[in-house]
Design a protein around this nucleic acid. Structure first.
Lengths: 201, 201
DNA sequence: CCACCCCCATGACATTTGTCCTGGCCAGGA
DNA sequence: TCCTGGCCAGGACAAATGTCATGGGGGTGG
């Protein structure tokens, strides 16, 4: 019996996946969580063989949780399941020690099969996506540039961002300008879009 | 046997929902589509009793498709199933003649039950959401203001928007300024965010 | 040790953005 | 009929944004 932990914020999706996996003869869903900061605790008590993690979760990102799981629960394999096949997400997932990376497109049958394969020690990644991730270089943004860009997405002004990051306004403008240059865009909004598309944020 | 049409762009979600609904003794999924512009054609051949529509679809919005379904397939009830419980979405869904409005949070059990209820002629809406939709007034943006705002979301400059809408730059700035004022925000990015949150875009 | 990169900051500058006022055109309602 | 409101446009102005040059401090690798 393969013990699976399921982390997914959308209730209906989570319930549907749990039911589907539960119908498989060799799979058992032993824990379900809807927030990223509940993953590690749930894994420590439920002791799953495979953790099926969404990336975009309230509380903590599935990627951060994956890294922590590697440390706290070394014999639990991580399978990332996400809406967005962003190259940077795949890269970060692999760096975090994930054993597989699935996008929510594609048929449901893939899912149970992927669970079994990661448990056998295989690495499950869509080949086309892997190529894209390798093709696009690594994240060129420095940590601070990425932070400034993140803070800018919802329309915050330079003053807002400076206050949030405890920086001077000049520094913020420099970071944003650098990010705009590195993304090859024309303003912070385009830069944020592109960075998000690449999975750099 | 209740005949259901399922329109949802995410493959895994679509497959999972189809399997779940298919497991109900009295429900049969007679058509599945992944794009908004396939809905009406599929409904005309499959003749469903209930159409379960996502809003954000490639090709055509589920709301537009709903309105068209009312005309082409008057005896087919529409049940909207969406990620976002935006007040404006609910309002537009009702104006489009939908019989129900579900958000993708909440348990899966709701789904089959909602299908049965709309078929019985009931209107299925989360009461809290209904209150929010009534509380917030209707969309204050004029069609052109909304268009300008839509065109601005991905970081387009005033010149870009003017070219796209065949307007002068002055006019575009006026529209954006009006939208900023009506949303009570400080710049176009915040305005676009707020308008989207309300379901006005 | 030096080169390099990240971090942080300043000031000057051009461009873009947002605001306000004015005005004309046209439709629908009082 | 007049009034209102949407649509479109121009100009003028203040504020925000983006660019660039410059400089100091710190860490890391050759």
């Amino acid at each position: 019996m393969i013990r699976v932990l399921l982390a997914e914020d959308q209730g209906m999706m989570r319930g549907a996946l749990a039911l589907l996996l539960g119908m498989e003869a060799d799979i058992e869903v032993v824990a379900q969580v809807g927030a990223g900061d509940e993953i590690v605790a749930a894994a420590l008590t439920a002791r799953p063989d495979v953790a099926l993690l969404d990336i975009e979760l309230p509380g903590r990102s599935g990627l951060e949780a994956a890294a922590e799981l590697r440390a706290e629960c070394p014999d639990c394999r991580v399978l990332i399941l996400t809406t967005f096949g962003r190259p940077g997400y795949l890269r970060r997932a692999m760096e975090a020690g994930a054993a597989g990376f699935l996008v929510k497109d594609g048929p449901v049958e893939e899912l149970a099969e992927a669970v079994r394969r990661v448990l056998r020690g295989e690495t499950v990644v869509d080949p086309a996506l892997a190529a894209a991730a390798l093709g696009a270089g690594p994240n060129p943004l420095t940590p601070r540039e990425a932070e400034a860009l993140r803070a800018a997405v919802d329309g915050a002004t330079v003053a807002d961002i400076a206050a949030a990051l405890h920086l001077s306004e000049s520094t913020v403008r420099n970071y944003l300008s650098a990010a705009i240059g590195k993304t090859g865009t024309r303003n912070r909004t385009e830069a944020a879009r592109e960075a998000r598309r690449q999975g750099w944020l």
